[in-house]
Design a binder for these strands. Structure first.
Lengths: 379, 379
DNA sequence: TTGTAAGCGTTATCAC
DNA sequence: GTGATAACGCTTACAA
């Protein structure tokens, strides 16, 4: 219990700063007399503002959070006081008192990957200047790391959580289900969302590219993949489905590695594939880095694109359009995913959950020179 | 509510009840008796741990922060209690009590830019698993935005601050000087650091590339630049210096834009430059995106590289090495800058500032096919 | 080495 | 609509 008899043996000299003075002199509408405390940041507090405005500190708190609930006159006075003191709220105190931090935790598997920097950009832009902080974690594609980070994040009682993909480990999933805040799964959609979801179908995207290459008359269509996370595997599954339907599937056409994706890895995988299946006439790359690597490898080997080898990428990085030849790719709504994930989270935090809690943003096949063969049925 | 903050190893059947019970019954070594409080997160607190371990909560606090100062026996008991309860410290409470958040604020000008995602990666890796959070802000190359974000960051009393570049606006600079925490300026070095600094000389880097192209026998060496932030301008200055020395400077050779850098912008700028100076025999690109765009543009125009046009980039993205032809570039220590900036910040936070507070990490000119002409002095 | 007391700056609760 | 009071969970200052 607090001791009410103690407070006033304040005899020491205070600091010279005007703020300190103010803290002693004026801030006494509240019961507490803030005297030469040994601690404290030296910055103006709610009570200082309250003192200057001649109101209770709780009123200042309300005026700041929900101006409607305070009379215009006081609101006015308080605004002036805030301004004069240069008051900045202390987020820790707020979080402690309300048992809720103004933080959105974001878990992504990679920072190297171009894709996620776009998502992040969308997230930051989606925030605008609302006073939420992004707490950001890199799982390095590891379930253990994801769980560990989530535990840390949960320790802050975040306002919302954004996680990548739909393949959380069981413990992780359960933690998310019981997190007690809105959760948005991004990048991919699927059945059985934890809470909200925004992304697109990687299976369908994989099918779309494969179908395009089949349509365009390619016979021996390879698949090149690096990193092979669950989303990559889903795209591979889409490829396989279409290839089987077309009666052209051959396991030898698939060349993957668990190593990270890179341009040079594209060249490496292409050479591997070409060794296994020298009759290759097209490659579908798991992403654009690889595709660019293949482009360069073909260039070095004087293979004509698309005449001898057709190339398709994934994600549609800006350079695909400009490349020579331009490279067919699947445009994915990365930035938009980030932006709308935040929008959904904010809505949910504000209490009105969006009606659509699972949002399919789709994708778009961009057909370009690298696959522009005319389909010539054998004749 | 199941407690997921518990280390996953003890996922036995013991759940919610014990904690609540404990909070009422046992936790009374401290003067406070935590009874049926209307507030609170329901999660175990320091006092709960203290109760279970039979010590004062301050001892638990110490055992967690600085184990050395607690006797091995108590340390042991406390560890067991923490484990059993799945106690996770509340960072807001800690921040409030200590007037210092375990947060490092990081201000970068862009997220799109490949360069900064590398720096970020370095920062995150440099953190290891030390319990510091990164608070991240994107200034969009705007001084106003930088100042605004800094103000927000300062409101949290961060443990350290990392800012990009050395050209802060006066107000911003002053805020940083008075931040009361270690400050690291990254990417670039220069005179008059605010506190610590890590990067390299962009002026020298600009000179190095230009000198290389001069050495290699190029006469009409263009400079292509986008975004033109202060660092870009410094590189341009380096180029200009060398060109003047060689008696080859011509303002018409410089083609820049304030628009963001991109591969397609590289092609655009190249065409512009070629129009102005059709006798161009080399281009130095302000960064690798542009260089790649130039490569593609040359390819489309059937210009031979390096025979007709030599190309040099900046940053040495991974793809430069693999490109066909491979592209000369300046390798910059982006990842290393991030990693070591954090190391410096951590050291300073821990109280032992590194002796070298200004660290020049240098750069490395990577000469590749795209500039491999033999220098043929006129004869 | 360990503990007690007293806040840190805010918000929830409840009374006016 | 406004305010006094008591937390929120932790750490600093100081005492033992």
């Amino acid at each position: 219990m607090r001791n009410f008899l103690a407070p006033s043996r304040d005899n020491k000299q205070r600091r010279a700063a005007p703020v300190a003075e103010l803290r002693r002199g004026v801030a006494s509408n509240d019961s507490e007399v803030r005297n030469r405390s040994r601690r404290g940041s030296g910055r103006p507090t709610l009570a200082d503002v309250a003192g200057l405005a001649g109101v209770g500190s709780i009123t200042v708190s309300r005026a700041l959070r929900d101006p409607e609930r305070v009379s215009p006159e006081l609101r006015q006075r308080i605004a002036a006081a805030v301004d004069e003191l240069g008051y900045v709220p202390n987020p820790s105190a707020r979080a402690l008192a309300s048992a809720r931090a103004d933080v959105i935790g974001v878990l992504v598997p990679s920072l190297t990957n171009n894709v996620f920097s776009e998502v992040l950009r969308g997230i930051h832009d989606g925030l605008g200047d609302c006073p939420l902080q992004i707490q950001f974690g890199n799982t390095h594609y590891s379930e253990q790391e994801e769980e560990r980070l989530l535990r840390v994040f949960l320790g802050q009682r975040p306002s919302a959580l954004i996680v990548s993909g739909i393949d959380q480990a069981p413990t992780t999933r359960q933690m998310l289900e019981e997190a007690g805040c809105p959760v948005v799964q991004i990048m991919e959609i699927g059945p059985d969302p934890i809470d909200m979801m925004i992304g697109f179908s990687h299976l369908e995207a994989g099918k779309a590219v494969a179908r395009h290459l089949v349509d365009v008359g390619c016979k021996r269509i390879g698949f090149l993949g690096a990193r092979m996370d669950p989303r990559s595997r889903r795209r591979l599954a889409g490829y396989e489905t279409v290839m089987r339907e077309a009666g052209r599937f051959d396991a030898a056409l698939v060349t993957t590695t668990i190593l990270p994706s890179s341009v040079s890895m594209g060249a490496v995988l292409f050479h591997k594939a070409f060794e296994k299946t020298p009759d290759l006439d097209a490659v579908i790359c798991n992403n654009d880095d690889l595709a660019l690597g293949v482009l360069f490898a073909c260039h070095r080997a004087s293979l004509k694109i698309p005449a001898q080898i057709a190339i398709a990428g994934f994600n549609d990085l800006e350079m695909m359009e400009v490349a020579s030849p331009s490279i067919t790719s699947v445009r994915t709504p990365r930035y938009e995913i980030g932006r709308r994930a935040i929008a959904m989270a904010r809505a949910a935090i504000a209490g009105d959950r969006p009606q659509r809690t699972v949002v399919d943003l789709g994708f778009e096949l961009k057909m370009r020179e690298s696959t522009m063969r005319r389909a010539r049925p054998a004749f």
